[in-house]
Amino acid sequence: MGLVDKVELPQPIKFVFNWGRKYSLWVFNFGLACCAIEFIATSTARHDFIRLGVIPFAHGPRQADLLVVSGTLTDKMAPAVKRLYDEMPEPKYVISFGSCSNCGGPYWDSYSVTKGVDQIIPVDVYVPGCPPRPEALLHGIIKLQERIGSESLKERYARGELEPIVVGA
């Protein structure tokens, strides 16, 4: 990425850079189960996350910045998630929406459910609930945007692992 991952940007440029990135997050629709319905409800008129700059219906993983995993992840589906996550270009963020993708949820004892999407891919924000209210997703997006706003790309590409944010904790 040129100089961005090698040089610590001066504050004004960093501010503008991050401001542009955080207010134009393209979401890759990864609706798996019931939480996908609440995700769609958040994108429609009443709650509307488009006004936060989060744009749904990215044309594919290669044009997306944000992956919102909403719904139960099963062992059969897990390789597909990993592959799609790997296809997304950096910098990419993951919101785990709903308790099934946080930790397995109500199916914690099932033989076919992966107990949480963080077993496969790194997660930035956890939004708990079954299903979480649309307002909780908006809260999660705002928290993610705050983090992106203060992010340093140099540290990110130096593989610094950040503590994930848990909404409502």
Binding site: A33, I37, G71, T74, M77, P106, Y107, S110
Partner: peptide, 28 residues
């Protein structure tokens, strides 16, 4: 099978009130 969450097996481990909470998630 990509959403197979084994409701029928889980129902054998839950009492009748828990099954109601579980079962309203198959046709979500």
């Amino acid at each position: 099978g990509y959403m197979h969450r084994s409701f029928e097996k889980l129902a054998e481990y839950r009492d009748y009130r828990q099954i109601i909470a579980l079962v309203n998630r198959h046709d979500w």
